[in-house]
Each structure stands twice: as structure tokens, then as C-alpha cells.
Design a protein around this nucleic acid. Sequence first.
DNA 1: TGTTAACCGTACTCACTCAGTCCGGATTGC
DNA 2: GCAATCCGGACTGAGTGAGTACGGTTAACA
Lengths: 158, 158
Amino acid sequence: MLRLSKLTDYAVVVLVRLSSMDGVQTSPGIAAATGIPEPTVAKVLKILAGSDLVSSQRGARGGYRLNRVLADIPVADVITAIDGPIALTACVDGSASECESLCMCPMRGRWDPVNAAIQSALTSISLADMQPSTIPLAFRMPAEAPHVPVQSPLRAAE
Amino acid sequence: MLRLSKLTDYAVVVLVRLSSMDGVQTSPGIAAATGIPEPTVAKVLKILAGSDLVSSQRGARGGYRLNRVLADIPVADVITAIDGPIALTACVDGSASECESLCMCPMRGRWDPVNAAIQSALTSISLADMQPSTIPLAFRMPAEAPHVPVQSPLRAAE
DNA sequence: TGTTAACCGTACTCACTCAGTCCGGATTGC
DNA sequence: GCAATCCGGACTGAGTGAGTACGGTTAACA
């Protein structure tokens, strides 16, 4: 499975939550609203603040505020902020030190078109496209509901 | 970083190597040619055989043989064979048991368009596109990579 | 000015996953 | 029968990431 870190998933949840209310929101408040552990929310917000996706306000009555509207935040930005540059293999980003020891690697640079395709796919989708309003079913999922994931176009890949 | 398992990387190398010669090839031979440890090559080939990408022939003078030409093998097939279904988050594939304990997750199903975009991107690229001779220069990633791929590294594998 | 509420930064631990290895068995050609 | 090769499973060590804890800093407010 192409793996995305859990923190990235959390980041999207947090950003969507931030956009749902005006003014600043505290990390405990977001944690309570989303069900994500509070220290984890704080961790995610801190990283996002470092990438200028949100801005922080310290002190009493402080909190976090979204810097841009959701439609202006491509998914690629969130993934890059949390996980670092989007690259499927170590060969593509800067950290190819390991590969240098294996100089006969015949795939050097071959993943570039794949990475480029994924990069452009992720850039073309904004967080607004992932908002509940566009797929109105899932925001309030009753606890007893049998877990029926929204039908995924990816099931064909199995 | 969007993570792809090393085995998938190896699988591409192995498949390209298989396509470069007629007849069956043994895993020790492929290991020697690619520099990948032999048990790992065997592991990759076994998985690929289970996905009908290659066929195996047991016994003396046995080995592995490519079932299709490279142009008929999309990258998505290789990734699916090695890593399982292409899905960025556990919510999308079947293994969402963990998510059931967190029923207020507002992102349920939201990753579907992202996964679909990546799936189509990966399906549109075949292994033949990753072969050394076929990469158009314009496809190279300009960003943040002082690491210029070695030209035609596949020769080293022959 | 002191208290309080919130962010900030770092370090730590635990658990999980994956790459790589090993071994015995089955199959096939000579 | 022997040798070469694939087959299948189990095991281990390393790496990584999620989550936690704690003390410090900043700013609003009474």
C-alpha cells in the first residue's frame, strides 16, 4: 500500500476543522472536536505553522488560525509540510546517499516521471475538494453504523 | 515523504532485467546482474509470480520468465503486486478497523478523489516508460534535485 | 503586577513494519 | 540418483513514526 503518514491524515482533519470556524481555535478545542489526541493535534499544528499553512497566536486566548482558504491549499502542500518532499523513492529526493553505494542501480532517475505524475495529481486537488460538504454523508457517522466505506474507485486495484 | 517500499523498487529493476533477455533467468543470475541480494530477488520474484506478472519454471534449468512485455505492465500493477492495493490511508482500503473506534473521523472517504488521481496517474505509466531509452528530458523533475541521474544506467546491469 | 491560559521545543518510549536471512521441502532435468 | 532450482514459511534486526511528558515562553486579564 502506498503509505501516507497518519499525521498527514490528521493534518487534513485539523485544517478542515480550522476552516469551519472564524477566529482562532485552540489545540484542546480541536482535539475535542475531532477526537484526535491533544498532544498529537498540537504536534500537527506546530508543523503546519512552520509551513505557513496556519499561523499561531501565543498567550491567553491564543490559538491557531488558517492562513488561506481551503480551496487555496492543495493536498500536495499538506503532504509536503508533514512528510517532506513528495518522492516515492529515496533516489529522487536529495537523500540518495544509500544509492551511491550501489552504483549499478539501473533505476536511477527512472521514477521521476512517476513522481511527477503523482505530484501533479496531488497539486490539482485542494482541501476544499475533500470537504464534507462536497460529499455530505460522512461528517456525522453514528457509532452503531456498520462501517461501510464510501465506495472507492480504488477497489479495482485489489 | 510518500513512501514506496524498497521491494517495489527492486521489482521494477528485476522486471526490466527480465525483459532484457529471452528465455528463463534464475534468481541468482538476476541478483548478480542487478546487485540486489539474492534472497531478496527470490522474494520479489515469488511475489511477482503470484500476481501473474512473471511465470516460474521449477527444477534444473528452471527460472523466471516475463509474462507480458514491459509496455503492457503499468507501474500500478507492480505496486499493487508488492505493496497491495494503492491507497494512501487505511480508511480507503479494507483495513479500517482502527478507524471504527474513532467514529467521528470527519475525513471518512475524503481521500477517495486523491487516491483515484494517483491510481490513474500510476496506471498511465508503464514500465516501458521507465526504461532508460524512453524518458523524455522534459519529464525530469526540476525541483530540488542536484542529483542528476546517470545517463543510461541500464547498461551496467547487462 | 501576578495569575492564568495557551503555544513552544525537546526528548523519550513503545509499537509496528519491513528488509533481509535462513532452512527444509518439492520439483525437474540430466 | 544427483544436482539445480523454485517454494513456503518463519525468524530477526533495524528503522521509523505515533504518542507522551515536561519545562519554558508569551500574552491577556483582573
